[in-house]
């Protein structure tokens, strides 16, 4: 363990990441997860030296790959750390080298070997109309695939609002009969909502599993409370302007340049549960409200129908 740890910090150092930076990340992640600071060393351990990496089977159904792309942007830990040293990403169509029947073999072997133990991550909604005829991989419908793989997993994590709630393909009139995985299969899933979600919330959920052996506590929509426990509005940096009655009423205005509250140009922050304003995207770079764009409420079910037209006050 000591040696492995040393090797781990050497590797970090080589990338220009100091031990201090790394501990800072672990502190940040631990806080994001809502755990007490006594967990920080344990969080560090999870990244330093897992004995056998837990197997992840990542299914792509009716989706746009935006959630996978979001995870690729993870900087602490880097995505290569996640893939090479933390997790065993046995099946993931966007990054895997194998294709065709060789890919199918990998999927079935991973499921067989790790029955009841692997984490199934689902990206994308399930087409249910016409026997699932509107979406297929290897000749099998998304519905068949989800039915076959999901129940064999230790747990199902839905990454993104599509697998969580159906999202855009399920927006009215929902031509393909798309549904979230939980609804389509009648199972309980952990839902990392967002379009796409912040990768830190996925990483936090996985670390929770590795650390405590269970998936995190969730709200009534299956969303981890550590990330989705409060509204955007609760923690918005522009909240002070809201309280002072200082609003942007037109894009490009003087008020917009001053960073006033976006409520009157349609911000859905008061109705939306997520931690965007706290953790921000692309490793703390920004988030939509900071860029002057009203929140569209992408972590709420049916936001495409319930929150539109977007640019109108709630």
């Amino acid at each position: 363990m000591v040696n492995q740890e040393k090797a781990f910090y050497d590797r970090l150092a080589q990338k220009g990441v100091t031990r201090r930076d790394f501990m800072k990340f672990c502190t940040f992640l631990t806080a994001t997860m809502g755990l007490s600071s006594s967990f920080i060393p344990k969080v560090a351990e999870v990244f330093a030296a897992p004995a056998k990496r837990p197997t992840v089977v990542w299914l792509h159904l009716g989706e746009c790959t935006g959630c996978s792309e979001a995870l690729l942007r993870s900087m602490y830990p880097w995505i290569d750390e996640l893939v090479l040293e933390v997790l065993d990403v046995a099946y993931h169509e966007t990054i895997m080298a194998a294709a065709g029947h060789q890919a199918e073999e990998v999927l079935h072997e991973a499921v067989q070997k790790n029955k009841g133990k692997f984490i199934c991550v689902v990206e994308g909604a399930v087409a249910t109309k016409y026997n699932g005829g509107y979406g297929k991989v290897g000749g099998k419908s998304f519905l068949q695939i989800a039915k076959e793989i999901c129940p064999q997993a230790a747990g199902v994590i839905c990454i993104g609002s599509c697998s969580a709630f159906g999202n855009i393909p399920a927006a009215k009139p929902n031509p393909g009969g798309y549904k979230g995985v939980g609804e389509a299969l009648g199972i309980k899933t952990v839902n990392i909502a967002g379009c796409p979600p912040n990768p830190i919330n996925f990483v936090g959920t996985v670390v929770n599993y590795l650390l405590l052996g269970k998936l995190p506590a969730v709200d009534d929509l299956g969303r981890p409370l550590f990330a989705y426990g409060q509204t955007i509005h609760d923690n918005c940096a522009r909240r002070g302007h809201f309280e002072n009655g200082e609003f942007v009423e037109e894009f490009g205005s003087k008020e917009a340049a001053l960073g006033y509250c976006l409520y009157k140009v349609g911000c859905r922050g008061p109705e939306t549960y997520n931690n965007c304003g706290i953790v921000k995207f692309n490793s703390g770079c920004s988030w939509p409200v900071q860029a002057g764009a009203p929140c569209i409420g992408c972590s709420q079910p049916e936001f495409w129908d319930k929150f539109t037209p977007f640019y109108q006050e709630l």
Binding site: K52, L84, A97
Partner: peptide, 9 residues
Amino acid sequence: QLGPFANAY
């Protein structure tokens, strides 16, 4: 555990 590099050409 070959992950994304398993069973390729």
